[in-house]
Amino acid sequence: MPATESPSLAHWQTTGKWFNYDGHAVFSQMGGEGEAVLLLHGFPTSSWDWHRIWPFIAPHYRVFALDMMGFGFSDKPLEYPYSISDQADLHQGWIEQMGLGRVHILAHDYGCSVAQELLARSQEDALDFSIASVCFLNGAVFPEVFKPLFIQKVLAGPLGALASRVLSRRVFDYNMSRIFGPETQPGHEELSDFWQLLLYNNGRGVIHKLMGYLDERRCHRHRWVGSLLRARQPIRLIAGTADPVSGRGVIERFRELAPSPDIVAMPGVGHYPHFERPGMVWHHYRDFLKDTRSPQTSGG
């Protein structure tokens, strides 16, 4: 496969691996070699979000990604305590079980909150590995400037269970397209892949249960924003400015609160910069990582 050729969804699934997490099957992807980079996906999608940028990263780093509980090809049990904390437990256990001593984190959307929880645990010496760096992509790291879509509000409300059951492909396509940039819109086949992953294993039956992360962000703001502002690791925000939910507001808030804000704004790009402009994101991420490489690999 050429360095920048993306795999198909079928190939992504068949080349992945499943592991057991508290009696549930979790889908994962691993590849490349070198320093470890952990990719944390967003809502309501999956590790598939990374497939376009994966061919850029894997020749230079050892890359890890999984579908969190309730997402993608992983199990989606109806009776399950879905939470950001549990997703952080999932990643922490996975990394520690593999014996990784040091990881870089590249996180998007929902995954940004997971990364912030892992940062907080790192600052409490509660991890058996070190976090070398964190790069955020369009996520509500500051919940007060997050602007949820109407469908997200409905799913998070008292009618969420009903809304999830009647969620149609048309409504899904409309809302996904809204958060992409005007010149980087997903095509029919790409939307079909996103929809297929949502439907897989009764995903519509649990999507409203995943929406608890909106309240979690508000409840844990002090902990999660504090972990970001206290971080000693290099931190960068790469954000599409055309994102209506966590674009310009997050950029401005990051610039206002962070002691030494490292921000890359991408005009015309929406909520999924790594999907919309993977080459550009890799360029900015590669430059960020150059200054964070461990002494053992700096000459490679």
Rank of each mutant, 00 (worst) to 15 (best):
L210P: 01
L127R: 13
V264I: 06
G111F: 07
R169Q: 15
G32C: 08
P259G: 02
E33M: 08
T184K: 10
H208V: 00
C219I: 14
T184S: 13
P81Q: 01
I105F: 02
R178A: 14
R52H: 12
F64N: 00
A120E: 09
D49Q: 13
H24D: 06
F288D: 10
L167H: 11
F19N: 05
Y80T: 01
R230V: 03
T15G: 00
V154W: 01
E5T: 03
V225G: 02
L155W: 12
A58K: 06
V281Y: 14
V37Q: 07
A120T: 12
T4Q: 08
M280G: 13
K290S: 14
H11A: 11
A65R: 08
S260Y: 03
I207A: 00
G270D: 01
W282L: 12
H220Y: 10
P2A: 04
I179M: 10
M266S: 04
R248S: 05
P182W: 15
G240D: 04
T14Y: 05
F64S: 00
L38F: 05
V171C: 03
A88V: 05
D22Y: 04
N175F: 14
H91W: 10
D215V: 07
F27A: 06
Q152C: 15
K153F: 12
R121H: 12
S133M: 04
G268T: 06
A25E: 07
D67R: 11
N138F: 11
M176W: 10
T241W: 06
L40E: 06
W54S: 07
G300E: 14
R170S: 15
R223M: 13
G205T: 00
L159M: 14
M211E: 02
G31C: 07
H208T: 01
V206T: 10
T184G: 06
A140D: 09
M98V: 08
S298F: 10
F150A: 15
A265D: 01
E96K: 09
G270E: 02
F56K: 02
G101L: 11
H108D: 12
R255E: 03
V154D: 01
K76Q: 00
G300Q: 14
A88C: 03
E124T: 14
H271I: 10
E256K: 10
I151N: 09
S46Q: 05
W224V: 13
G139E: 12
Q233M: 08
H41A: 08
R178Q: 11
K17T: 11
V269N: 03
T241E: 09
S298R: 15
Y110V: 10
P267Q: 00
A242I: 09
W12P: 00
D291A: 15
A3K: 06
S168H: 13
D128N: 15
M266C: 02
Q233T: 12
E5L: 05
E189I: 09
P44N: 13
Q196Y: 03
L199H: 04
Q116G: 08
L90C: 00
E256W: 05
V145G: 09
A239V: 12
E276A: 10
W18I: 01
V166F: 12
M266N: 01
E189V: 12
P148S: 15
G70P: 02
L214Y: 09
P81S: 02
L38W: 08
S168R: 15
V264G: 01
P55Y: 09
L191R: 11
V166Y: 05
D67P: 07
S130W: 09
I179C: 13
